[in-house]
Design a protein around this nucleic acid. Sequence first.
DNA 1: CGGAATCCGACAGGATACTG
DNA 2: CAGTATCCTGTCGGATTCCG
Lengths: 122, 122
Amino acid sequence: MNRTEFRDAFFPDCPIRNVLSRVGDKWSMLVLFTLESNNCQRFKELQRNIPDISQKMLAATLKILEADGLVRREAYAEIPPRVEYSLSDKGKSLLPLIDNLLVWASSNMDDIIASRRRYLLK
Amino acid sequence: MNRTEFRDAFFPDCPIRNVLSRVGDKWSMLVLFTLESNNCQRFKELQRNIPDISQKMLAATLKILEADGLVRREAYAEIPPRVEYSLSDKGKSLLPLIDNLLVWASSNMDDIIASRRRYLLK
DNA sequence: CGGAATCCGACAGGATACTG
DNA sequence: CAGTATCCTGTCGGATTCCG
């Protein structure tokens, strides 16, 4: 399951594999979510809002999200250059589903962590 | 963001990072989903239903999901041994959210792939 | 049958330096 | 400012072997 490939090689029609190959990496969902909280942001803003992402990974992530049509990129030929990123309609349609995951996580994380603590103590 | 740690080091309360650290790996969601489609399955069955997973990764994934309280493991002291895995209540509560993601993926993957093709041609 | 242990390769991703 | 280019490391995950 390679992010640069179109589909999972073994199960090209498996939605789990395909969706994970898009947003299952370390940064994609975080970038999408950051864009939603304040649609239209510049490269530097995104970096500030995700302080521990490297330039390399932010650039790479945005490139893939743009290639997949989830993020729109608008470059202005100025000096110094200005580039603005925003969610596409498709990107926006994905966010509510992520939000649901987050709601679930918020109300279950403590519980999950407690489970794991108990498990490790056994 | 290490799956063996409790929380993301930088942002311990960020739900995106925490949920991704649980099910954002290559196999977790697939195992959860496979368990849902036929609750209660043995190790060998799971392997058959996910043909390209290795023993090592299936065992490791199940261990983490069990530690997080998403999957229940029941071992019977027989010879040959029998072990049955099933979704816990918490695991079941997570599945509908994944389902939503999959519905989204099903109706958008072709579009996403087309986007990427266009992008690569530029 | 249901694993654990070991070895190993590939690749995601970090740090740093450089550029239009 | 918004990126590339390069180098380097850690981790994920595959293949194989062994065990109760």
